[in-house]
Nucleic acid binder design. Structure first.
Lengths: 202, 202
DNA sequence: CCCCTTCGGTACCGATCGGTACGGATGTGC
DNA sequence: GCACATCCGTACCGATCGGTACCGAAGGGG
């Protein structure tokens, strides 16, 4: 099937767009949206400024693309966690995965989605709102998963699935903040396990 | 004692410096350090730019003064919480106080110390480090308090006071993030109570 | 071989950033 | 009333911000 790669007209792009996006993820991850300047981004991505704009449209759009790639790649543990058989296993996988992702050697500490744009100037309000929606999306997924657990008898019928989901994301967000503040992986694993201690039994 | 107010020479200041600082707190609280521009600050404080610099030295120093005032005022619940009789009461007071302070009507949501400077450009790294130190200071206070509780038999001898303190601050930070994302006070109170469920019994 | 389209980078744009020079105003102490 | 110190605000500084006009280069289709 040659139709899957319909060679586009014009001069071909001289850089790998996904690789450039990976570099941009790292910059946004460590500096946030406003903290990352175009000079830093273009230098890290190895391309010139107009090339960036031709490929991604704007700094804001580049951030959205980077967030998308970040979600598909570095937070893939989240999707895997949802597939765990019990609610307790889901919760454990989410928190352990959060600790791991937030303290990976060679990567920025913390979570792009959490500290990418917590408090910003007025210009980047759309970005902040997008990250709020991103976090709420995670809560929605967890809520549905825990509702399933209630229906399956894996959680007591009196359980509030939304509350459990919110609790989990709250602890995960706190872990991301602590990781960005310099807490170590072993410390945060202990914290995660302590938080899992109050998980309801079926 | 007139020596307590030794009238300084020169033209007297025409504005209340503490009131101006209170206004600055609100701006930094909602916009963060980098997100708050001098134009926003001076307009909110009701003073001109050179007046700000004469009174506070620099934007960075103004932020430190604002953080100080924020700590003395809006997070005074923390000092009160440390005085509670039992470790469980301390933990409850800290989390409930955090929820309350992060969701006060008429004030920015979240916590200045948490989202004031999580991810920033290189210039404001000193500010970020100061906020990390601020958060660690809170953990240190809690650790000492919980060590006292262990010594007094209020907590099991096997308890790790630092772990408990880190856990509490992690949940509190997560609450601040959720509040900034739009979670309501009742929701966060439930989350706080759920987190307190895993608190060790004496 | 020429046209068309898209890529590449240099060199620039106006706006905004944090910070300050300067001259007039207002107070105290001699 | 005169010297002095500090305040006030206007008007400005260089640097950096995100974004773009421009033109030569590199490919495919006729």
């Amino acid at each position: 099937m040659s139709s899957t790669t319909p060679v586009p007209p014009g001069r071909p792009r001289a850089f790998d767009i996904d690789e450039a996006l990976d570099r941009a993820v790292l910059v946004f991850w460590s500096k946030g949206f406003e903290g990352a300047s175009l000079d830093e981004l273009t230098e890290a991505m190895g391309i010139s400024r107009p090339s960036l704009y031709r490929a991604f449209g704007s700094k804001e759009n580049l951030f959205y693309k980077a967030l998308e790639r970040y979600t598909e790649g570095l937070t893939a543990y989240f999707a895997r966690a949802l597939a765990e058989p019990t609610s307790a296993a889901v919760a454990t996988a989410v928190l352990h995965g959060t600790v791991e992702a937030a303290t990976m050697a060679g990567f920025p500490t913390g979570c792009l989605g959490v500290h990418g744009a917590l408090a910003t100037g007025d210009e980047s309000r759309p970005v902040r709102d997008a990250l709020i929606a991103w976090r709420e999306d995670g809560i929605a997924h967890l809520t549905r998963r825990f509702q399933q657990a209630v229906d399956a008898g894996d959680l007591p019928p009196s359980t509030d699935p939304h509350l459990l989901a919110l609790y989990l994301r709250t602890v995960a967000n706190g872990i991301a903040v602590q990781a960005a503040s310099g807490s170590s992986r072993p410390e945060l694993l202990q914290v995660a396990n302590l938080a899992l201690g109050s998980w309801p039994k079926p």
